[in-house]
Structures are given as C-alpha cells and as structure tokens.
Design a protein around this nucleic acid. Structure first.
Lengths: 210, 210
DNA sequence: ATGTTATCGATACTCTTATATCGATAAATA
DNA sequence: TATTTATCGATATAAGAGTATCGATAACAT
C-alpha cells in the first residue's frame, strides 16, 4: 500500500463513489472485484481497476481486492480518517445551506463558524454555527490553524474575500462562486461551478431538442 | 456562425466565464481579443481562441471578435436566450437554498415549483415557490411540458426519485446527490458532485501538508 | 508610406486519460 | 484431477484536450 506518483484528479473524483459501495458491502463481504464496482456505477471495469492500482492497493488475481484495505487506503488518501476544520464566508442562501448540511462530517469536514459583513447577521447562529464579522477573520483562523475556507459570497466580492482568506492564513479555498479566482499557485482552489454545470445540462438539452 | 460538430464539455463549462466578461465589457467595447479574455481568467490565449472557434464564431485577424456576436452565439448555444422552466425535488437544506437562489434567472433557468414527501412542508411556500406532494409530480410536469428536474433528495431515495422524474416526462436531471444515477442514455444527467469536489480539495491539501 | 505589433486561423504536436489485449493466477466446476 | 471461469497486473493502443508554431491580416506608430 504505497503511493508512487500522485493520483490523477479524475481518479480522485471517483473515489467517493467507490467508497459508498465499499461501505455498503463491508459488513458482509471480504473481497470485491473491480467488475462488481464498475457494474454498479456504469463504468468500465478496467477504469476501476486502474484507479485502485493508482491509489496503491494491489488485488489478487482471480480473487479481487480486500474491502477493508481499500476503504483504509481511500480514507487515508482523502483525509476522511481525521476531521478537518473549516470556516465559511458568506451567509446567503447557499452559505446557509452549506452550514446546515450535516453530510460533510462523513467526508471529514467540520465547519466551525461562518463570517459575514452584514451587521444584522453577525452575532447570530445559523444551524448552530456562530456568525462572526468578516473583519475578525484572521483572529479565528490563526488561533485555530484553520486551513480550509469555503467561499459562498456574491460574485462581485469573491476575489476580494478570497484575498482576505489567504491573508488570514487559509491554504485551500472551496469556491462556490462562479468566479475564477486569481491566487498564487501555492493556494489550493477547488471550484463548484454551478453555472458551468448548468451550461453543460442546458447545451445538451438544446442539442437533443432540435 | 454555424456549428459543425458538437462542442466539447470542457469548452461548454468555460463559456459562462467568458460570458461574464463579455457582458461586462459590452457597453463600452465592440471588439475583444482572446488575449484579453485569457488574461482575465488566467487561461491560455490559445485555449480561449480555440473555444470560440469551436462554438462557430470567427474573429478577424489583428482585430478580434465582435463582442455582440460572441454573446449571441453563447446565449444561443447555452439556451440562455429563452427561459426554461424546471421543477425541484427535495426541500432539505440544499433544495431550499436552490429555491432561494435568484441567480438562475441569469442562466435562463426558472424553478416554478418544488416537490417533497413530507406532509408538513407540502402546501407551503419556500422563497415564494409552492411545494407540492411528490405523488402529483406528473400532473404538473406533463401539463406544463417541464423538461428539467433538479434532484436534491437524500442519497437513499435518489435513484427512486430519478425514476419517478423520468416517468413524469423529465428529460434532463440536474443531480445534486452524490449518487451515480442509472438511467437510459436518452436521459441527460448532469451531476454536481460535492463529495467529488471535496475529495479533490482534500487530497491536494493532504499532499501539500506532508 | 513603411515598419512594427497584435491578432486570428490552420496545422502539428504533446500530454493526459480512457480503453483494449494478453498472460498469469486461483477459485469453482465437471 | 482436469477444465473452465473470473479475476488481476502489465503493456500497448486510442481518444481527447491542451499547447505550440507559423503564415496572413490589419491596426497603429514612426
């Protein structure tokens, strides 16, 4: 169970899918084949096998992969084995929804607080999480060594708030705005681009309709 | 302005980014260069140019692309030129947030109603949108010829609700669950996979930290 | 008027990702 | 015990996406 080169992004994106299946079958199954996983996900068998090889686990010909071993390897690679604290900026619709989503814990993410600039919201709690003034961002992040910032602010201020996050010591930004952020390349940015996703849906629908 | 082959998904995903810039400069600018766009988005100049060529617009050497023409081509390709109606299923945290997000209008999407199975919510309005019983799904979708369904239900029932959506005549599913849906290939599925996105962020952070 | 520069289109190349093939292994079956 | 079958690893091939190069064009500056 060693990792030689870094795992590709497409592979990493599929790992949570594999994980869901593995967790489901774990109680009753000791070995799993790449075929079983690929069938359930409508993927190619060889793609699953290559992904698993990529994360450093080896299977046994004619037998399959050890389920427990796979789970541990993926958990370790994704950091789901120990919790990471994060803060969220922007308590609009989306920000509030993310604060209330209890599924992140399963993925090792713990949002400990939110920040906003609206005086009417500062000091309140949303889904049990305190909302602080964006101005005091760094006091919390630095004291608690927070590395992850979730960006859920309006587009117009996205870049500016991102800069503030980095200034406050954040290393990784989960960007829910449709803005391509301009940051140093030592900062990790992962974007959830709803506009892009909708564009794909929409263009495919358009292509079918005519 | 003709489209020869279908535009690639990566290209489509970048179009909204281009659009934001085009809309911004439109009032004051008639021609735009691929360099200007690429600089503002930290992309390669040639990638922008190839994308624009891909959607069927031609520029003028030494001059650039006509801004108005670009906007119209992209709007047409993405279907932003005329509104599409959609329904949403699942009024948990995420569902409610999507109902309240007013930015979709800009992308030609209009959520006209929500559906849920919880009797306490059925009959209410969320962000001004009515919530109906999931059981009466088809009566609305068929009457109004709705093509797009937004799936924001718990993972356990995702496949089952997707089947119900298709049964009710939905052609395209915007899937916010982390479940890989199993559908006929005449049905369009576009997934917003937060688990996958978080996995990428998390693995990159893990790689940096050691 | 002439040269320089920014720009595009077309073609070629590289890199990453996905898929196919084949021999080896061990379980299950005849 | 022999044969079939499902499975893996390794290597090779194909497909897709990104990037580089070069000649042509027209605006701008000299």
């Amino acid at each position: 169970m060693k990792e030689l080169t870094s795992v590709s992004v497409p592979t990493v994106r599929r790992l949570p899918l594999y994980m869901a299946i593995l967790k489901e079958i774990e109680p009753t199954t000791q070995y799993v084949s790449s075929t079983l996983i690929s069938d359930r996900l409508n993927l190619e068998q060889i793609q699953v096998r290559k992904d698993l090889a990529g994360i450093g686990v080896t299977g046994q010909p004619a037998v399959g992969f050890n389920v427990r071993e796979l789970i541990e390897a993926i958990e370790q690679l994704l950091g789901w084995d120990n919790m990471r604290d994060a803060i969220l900026v922007g308590t609009g619709n989306l920000g509030q929804a993310l604060l209330g989503y209890d599924g992140f814990a399963r993925y090792g993410l713990n949002i400990i607080a939110a920040f906003d600039s609206n005086p009417e919201i500062i000091g309140m709690k949303i889904h049990g999480k305190p909302v602080f003034d964006i101005e005091v961002l760094s006091s919390l992040t630095e004291r608690m060594h927070i590395q992850i910032g979730i960006l859920a602010v309006p587009s117009k201020v996205a870049q500016q708030v991102a800069d503030a996050l980095i200034e406050a010591g954040i290393h990784a930004i989960w960007n829910f705005t449709p803005v391509k952020l301009n940051v140093n390349n030592n900062i990790i940015v992962e974007q959830v681009d709803l506009a892009a996703s909708l564009a794909v849906l929409s263009s495919k629908l358009k292509a079918v309709n005519k």
